[in-house]
C-alpha cells in the first residue's frame, strides 16, 4: 500500500489548521465515499454475478455464487482481442508521438526567443479549448481526402492533435523551471547542444513527460467518438467502441457481460492512476499555485 501512503505526502509538513477528525467531518466523509464508490462497487458486483443473480427483483449486494463467466463471455466476444490490439497500437503510437513532438516544441518555446513565439503560445491555448466534437466533422473530411480514414496512423494523428497543446504547455513549464545556469554548466563541462538536451534537459523534464504520457494514454484509451466515427468496422475499432457495442439491442440485456467488459476496460486506467497518484496530486498542487 505504499502508493496510498505516498498520497499523504503534501500533508507531511507542519499544518495545524482546523481540527481534524470531528464526528461531523467523519460522517460526511464516510457518506460521501459510500455514495461515490457505489457505482463502481455495483459494476464489480454485477460482473461477478451469474445471470440469474444479476436480474433479481431485490438486488443482491454480494454475488451468492461468484463466477467468472461474464469475463469469459466478454473476452470471447467477437473481436475483443482484435480491438484490444488496435487499442494498444493506437495508445502506444499516441503516447510516443505526443512525447516526441511535444518535447521538441516545448524546448523551442522555452529555451529560445524568436518572433512569433507569443502568437504560437496563444494559438496553443485557443486550440486547447476547441471542442473535439466540433473538429470531428472537418477532420473527418480532411482525412477522407488524405485517405487517412480507417488507418491507425490517422487515428493516432487525431489523438496527438488533441493531446499536443496540453503536453507542449506542461513540458514547457518544466523547461522554464530549469535554471539557465545548469545548461551553462553543462556547456562549460563540454557538452554539445545535443548532449545538453538529452543528458541534462530531457531528464529534468521527466515529470512533464510522465504527465504527457498519462494524458495521452487516457485520451487515446478512452476515446469513443473519434474511433467510432473514423474507423470502419469491428476489426478496426478500439476497446471503447467494443464496449459500447455491448449495449446494442441484441446484447442489451447482458448486464453481467457489460459490467465485466467495463471492469476489464477500466482496470488499466485505474491501476495507472493509483500508481501515479502521488505525481497526480503533486502535479496539481504545482498547477494550483500557478493558477
Amino acid at each position: 500500500m505504499s502508493t496510498i501512503q505516498a498520497m499523504s505526502a503534501p500533508l507531511r509538513g507542519r499544518r495545524v489548521g482546523p481540527p481534524k477528525g470531528g464526528p461531523l467531518s467523519n460522517t460526511l466523509a464516510i457518506l460521501f465515499s459510500l455514495v461515490w464508490i457505489f457505482p463502481i462497487y455495483w459494476m464489480v458486483n454485477t460482473a461477478f454475478k451469474p445471470r440469474s443473480e444479476a436480474l433479481t427483483e431485490t438486488p443482491l449486494f454480494l454475488p451468492e455464487s461468484p463466477t467468472l463467466d461474464n469475463f469469459d463471455a466478454a473476452i470471447n466476444q467477437t473481436s475483443f482481442l482484435v480491438d484490444l490490439r488496435n487499442s494498444l497500437i493506437v495508445v502506444g503510437g499516441t503516447v510516443l508521438l505526443a512525447i516526441l513532438l511535444g518535447i521538441f516544441a516545448a524546448a523551442a518555446l522555452s529555451r529560445f526567443r524568436f518572433r512569433g513565439r507569443r502568437t504560437i503560445m496563444v494559438v496553443i491555448l485557443v486550440v486547447q479549448m476547441l471542442p473535439a466534437s466540433a473538429l470531428l466533422i472537418p477532420t473527418f473530411m480532411v482525412f477522407n481526402e488524405l485517405g487517412l480514414l480507417g488507418t491507425y496512423f490517422g487515428l493516432i494523428l487525431a489523438y496527438v492533435a488533441l493531446v499536443l497543446p496540453f503536453s507542449v504547455w506542461v513540458m514547457r513549464g518544466f523547461f522554464i523551471a530549469i535554471p539557465v545556469e545548469i545548461e551553462e554548466a553543462a556547456r562549460i563541462d563540454g557538452a554539445s547542444t545535443w548532449q545538453v538536451l538529452t543528458r541534462i534537459l530531457f531528464p529534468l523534464v521527466a515529470p512533464g513527460v510522465i504527465a504527457t504520457s498519462i494524458f495521452a494514454f487516457i485520451t487515446a484509451w478512452n476515446d469513443y467518438l473519434i474511433a467510432y466515427t473514423f474507423m470502419k468496422d469491428q476489426s478496426q475499432y478500439t476497446l471503447p467502441v467494443w464496449l459500447a457495442s455491448f449495449s446494442t439491442p441484441l446484447t442489451g440485456t447482458d448486464f453481467g457481460g457489460q459490467m465485466a467488459g467495463s471492469v476489464i476496460f477500466s482496470l488499466p486506467v485505474v491501476v495507472f492512476f493509483l500508481l501515479i497518484q502521488r505525481k497526480l496530486v503533486s502535479g496539481m498542487s504545482a498547477g494550483a499555485v500557478k493558477g
Partner: peptide, 20 residues
C-alpha cells in the same frame, strides 16, 4: 570560441548542480 573549447571550469552562484 565555444565554452567547451576554452578548457575552463566555472562555479556558479547557485552552484547549478545537475539535480538528477
Amino acid at each position: 570560441a565555444e565554452p567547451k573549447e576554452r578548457d575552463i571550469a566555472m562555479v556558479f552562484q547557485n552552484y547549478a548542480l545537475y539535480p538528477h
